[in-house]
Design a protein around this nucleic acid. Sequence first.
DNA 1: GTCTATACAAGGATAGAC
DNA 2: GTCTATCCTTGTATAGAC
Lengths: 225, 225
Amino acid sequence: MLQPDHELDGFSRRRQIIDEATTLFLQRGYAGTSMSQLAKACGMQKASLYHHFPTKEALFVACATDGFDEAIAELAAIRADPTLDDDERFRRAIHAVYRINIDSACGRMAPLIAEVSRTIPAVARAFHDEFIMHQHVLMNGIIDDGIARGSFQAPERLGFEHMIFGPVVSLSLEREMFTTFDKFDTLRPIERIRTEHAELLLRLLHGADGGARGTAGRGRAGRAR
Amino acid sequence: MLQPDHELDGFSRRRQIIDEATTLFLQRGYAGTSMSQLAKACGMQKASLYHHFPTKEALFVACATDGFDEAIAELAAIRADPTLDDDERFRRAIHAVYRINIDSACGRMAPLIAEVSRTIPAVARAFHDEFIMHQHVLMNGIIDDGIARGSFQAPERLGFEHMIFGPVVSLSLEREMFTTFDKFDTLRPIERIRTEHAELLLRLLHGADGGARGTAGRGRAGRAR
DNA sequence: GTCTATACAAGGATAGAC
DNA sequence: GTCTATCCTTGTATAGAC
């Protein structure tokens, strides 16, 4: 999945093309983006693009599968950070999930994957296996660790996972849908939504009965119910 | 928004075109669907389509804004149904929201709206004002009624709304993304997700402290767990 | 590795007969 | 209201010089 290529002067044409293409794809969709537009955006001739990528489809696959690891890195680091207590780790993990899916290019690719899912099924497969799946695994790990240490109560996992990722994914989609609206941040104040979202999830993790510990560290015995 | 037209024999060509076009748009995206393909699907000539719709864009707008009211009708009915207690009403409302956004054609339009949001901003506006907004209003009404009757505790509303609709919208998107996978229902068992989702939301509505009433009618004091 | 030039298909849309 | 025929643009992709 890597192409060391000719990253000589810190400037790779391939990189530039991928970046410009990603921008265009995100703005106008796959079928709505033409190689001519892309060539213009890159300041080069259409034919030159085909020196770097054999087909438009191959170019799209490169864009869509680019940067999975970097995007998820932060979440992995949070899971591994031993200095955090479980509640705080969970809060930061939620924060990271928002950044991954709303700010990063590959997080914003979801509607595009849907668009091409029938014509390029492989890209949907990769998106699931190497992006979505990894986030779920990391998040479940964080929850499981908290349960093992007595900080969290086990929730119905399937529904809970969807209550973690669903609001983030839909917010990302809505931001694409409503980009032309005056102030999207008034319609959907992401910061506030994220905070409330995290606190509501924590309430569920602490159990319905006792409310459990507010900021339980690891292993502290605070039990509930 | 209605066109009585010539619904003579219960078969309208306009209706047929909208239905076929909607299917194609959902499968291949807006830019990825051609008028030629559509003409073939309708069993007519390309030029004939232009007798019914002046442009491809107008046709898409017709598809995307078709059936809002019908899709939402069930949710409105549930809100107004006086025979339900608040918990059961909420459960059925969640059920309806799943059907609206996952099964109905206009619910599945979301990624398409995102695709055309820059080129046809009006359709994004309509989708928000006449579809999304209405669902939020109805759902909030159901919650407010429950609060007024003492069945529910008021949650942080903004975060809670996203925890209602987010998982549904993302599930709808994922179903489009992963249509080519062997068994989507194994990957994302919608029935089970929906049930767990509803129960977790109810747990939040019942409050972290007392758990509040399990199946409280209006005012009934029933406890649970 | 980038360019000019071009092949060839498909796109949206229109004209005008029936 | 549907057809055949056609216009013109744009699309992806390639050939071959530099």
